[in-house]
Amino acid sequence: TRVETATETAWISLVTALHLVLGLSAVLGLL
């Protein structure tokens, strides 16, 4: 259904953003 697709997209966006933040923090930590 469309609701499931929207929820899945939201989760993917959330996980991606989380990985970006963690990756950025790791890079800044190494610097």
Rank of each mutant, 00 (worst) to 15 (best):
T1S: 11
T1Y: 04
T1W: 08
T1C: 10
R2E: 07
R2C: 11
V3D: 11
V3M: 09
V3K: 06
V3R: 09
E4A: 09
E4T: 02
E4Q: 07
E4D: 06
E4G: 08
T5V: 06
T5M: 14
T5W: 03
T5E: 11
T5K: 02
T5I: 03
A6P: 05
A6T: 05
A6F: 02
A6M: 15
A6G: 08
T7S: 11
T7P: 12
T7G: 08
E8M: 06
E8I: 06
T9C: 00
T9W: 05
T9D: 04
T9G: 11
T9Y: 07
T9E: 00
A10N: 10
A10D: 03
A10K: 07
A10L: 05
W11C: 14
W11K: 00
W11D: 04
W11N: 03
I12G: 11
I12N: 13
I12F: 08
I12V: 11
S13Y: 03
S13N: 05
S13T: 10
S13C: 15
S13R: 06
S13V: 15
L14D: 01
L14P: 08
V15W: 01
V15S: 03
V15Y: 03
V15G: 11
T16Y: 14
T16A: 13
T16L: 04
T16F: 13
A17W: 00
L18W: 15
L18D: 15
L18Q: 01
L18M: 02
L18S: 08
H19C: 15
H19A: 15
L20R: 12
L20T: 08
L20I: 07
L20G: 09
V21S: 15
L22K: 09
L22A: 12
L22F: 05
L22V: 11
G23I: 12
G23R: 10
G23L: 06
G23K: 12
G23V: 07
L24Y: 00
L24E: 00
S25M: 15
S25F: 13
A26M: 04
A26R: 04
A26P: 02
A26I: 09
V27P: 01
V27N: 09
V27M: 00
V27Y: 11
V27R: 08
V27D: 02
V27Q: 00
L28I: 03
L28R: 11
L28C: 10
G29E: 07
G29C: 08
G29A: 11
G29S: 05
G29Q: 00
G29N: 08
G29L: 09
L30Y: 07
L30T: 09
L30H: 05
L30F: 10
L30A: 14
L31I: 13
